[in-house]
Amino acid sequence: MIERRIQSGVGPKTGHKNEKGVGCLNIIVCIKQVPSTSNVEVDPVTGVLRRDGIKSKMNPYDLFALEQAFLLREQYGGTVAALSMGPNQAMDVLYEALYMGADSAVLASDRRFAGADVLATSYTLAQCVRKMGKYDLIVCGKQTTDGDTGQVGPEMAEWLEIPHACNAISIESFSEGAFTVKVNMDHSIYTLKIEAPCLITVDKDVNTPRLPSYLRRKRAGNAQISVWSMDDLADQAESHYGLSGSPTQVERIFPPEAHDDRECFKGSGEELADRLYSLLRQKKRI
């Protein structure tokens, strides 16, 4: 069994708080490497993927999360650690985070992590967070551009038994062991007080992420990225990781279906304008 107790409330506080309840924040930022294009198609006949050479980049939403962490560190002092899970190539985004200003970086990389869905991914990341030691805040991007789900952050918070808030537009302050945060709900803006340690996902465009700097790059030249495999984590049951730890299964993939009642015309501007006009006329839109 995975060791955790289910409680209706918040779990035990593992985070760090100094005597005055302010100061020094240890922040972990979760980042992900994503494909930089979405140019992947399935051949409808063979079911095989056609692809252009796939290049990768940091999930753009994570840049706002990193920047938010740096801003808090500037205000309160402390450290920012970047955490990612993925193949060895994912080191690239961790280096980028270091060059932007992260103090340390951890990559969870192991073939046994492969094929992880939301549950197994969030569990693996939560295991890494536990190993990383005391923290006050985990910051995640709102979602990724390849999965677009935004589910891993809140699910990590559940594994870690800490509260969370999604879509923060600002983290206003940290005092007496709690953050004051403004979050963007569908129809309203909530201002809430959330106790550390907690997890906050950051909305996009809430700040202007800094660029990786040459100076930091030089300074970080020797910075090491810790690479952890399953053997480094407290829970070593293979059945909790990767495909085995994933309750969802992808049964098949297929190209999106095309509408069958469709018409397509090629022609001059004038001809096509006529088509458009008569159709909109027929539909009583003009």
Partner: peptide
């Protein structure tokens, strides 16, 4: 999007967004 993933982890079950 905020509450469903918590339930997924609580029951160690799958979520498809």
């Amino acid at each position: 999007r905020s509450v469903a993933p918590r339930i997924a982890a609580r029951f160690r079950t799958g979520i498809t967004a």
